[in-house]
Amino acid sequence: MEYDVVIVGAGPAGLSAAIRLKQLAAEGGNEVSVCVLEKGSEVGAHILSGAVMDPVAMNELFPDWQALGAPLHTEVTEDRFLFLTESKAYRTPDWMLPACFRNHGNYVISLGNVVRWLGQRAEALGVEIFPGFAAAEVLYNDDGSVKGVATGDMGVDRAGRQTADFQAGMELHAKYTLFAEGARGHLGKQLTRKFDLDRGRDPQTYAIGIKELWEIDPARHQPGLVIHTAGWP
Results as ranks from 00 to 15, higher is better:
Gly28His: 11
Ser33Ala: 10
Thr229Ala: 13
Val43Met: 01
Val156Arg: 05
Gln23Cys: 07
Gly188Pro: 14
Asp198Arg: 12
Gly231Val: 06
Arg80Ala: 05
Gly188Gln: 14
Ser49Asn: 15
Gly188Thr: 14
Gly112Lys: 10
Ile208Tyr: 00
Met96Asp: 08
Thr92Lys: 10
Gly209Cys: 11
Arg161Thr: 01
Trp232Gln: 07
Leu197Asp: 10
Glu2Met: 13
Leu191Glu: 09
Ala25Pro: 08
Ala135Met: 02
Glu42Thr: 12
Val6Ser: 03
Glu181Thr: 09
Glu128Asn: 13
Ala164Ser: 07
Gln204Trp: 00
Pro203Tyr: 01
Thr205His: 12
Leu213Asp: 07
Thr205Pro: 05
Arg193Phe: 00
Arg184Tyr: 00
Leu82Ile: 15
Arg161Met: 06
Ala159Gln: 06
Asp217Ser: 09
Asp79Met: 10
Gly185His: 04
Ala174Thr: 04
Val108Thr: 11
Ala10Val: 10
Tyr3Thr: 11
Ala45Cys: 12
Gly148Trp: 03
Ala99Ser: 09
Glu137Ala: 14
Leu172Arg: 06
Val36Ala: 09
Ala150Trp: 00
Ile208Glu: 05
Leu68Trp: 02
Leu213Thr: 14
Ser49Phe: 01
Cys35Leu: 15
Glu38Ile: 02
Pro218Arg: 04
Met1Gly: 12
Phe81Asp: 01
Asp54Gln: 07
Ile19Lys: 03
Leu213Gly: 03
Gln162Arg: 15
Arg199Ala: 15
Ile208Thr: 14
Gly50Ser: 15
Leu178Ser: 01
Trp214Asn: 09
Pro131Asp: 08
Gly148Leu: 06
Ser33Glu: 10
Thr163Asn: 01
Ala89Leu: 04
Phe133Asn: 07
Leu225Gly: 03
Leu191Phe: 03
Ala51Val: 05
Ala219Asp: 14
Ile7Glu: 09
Asp198Val: 06
Gln120Ala: 11
Ala150Thr: 08
His73Ala: 13
Asn103His: 13
Gly11Ser: 08
His228Ile: 06
Pro55Ala: 09
Gly44Lys: 07
Glu2Gln: 15
Gly28Gln: 14
Thr177Pro: 05
Ala13Cys: 11
Glu42Asp: 12
Gly11Pro: 02
His228Asp: 08
Ile210Lys: 06
Asp157Gln: 01
Ala26Phe: 00
Ser145Met: 05
Leu139Trp: 00
Phe166Thr: 10
Arg102Phe: 01
Ala13Ile: 15
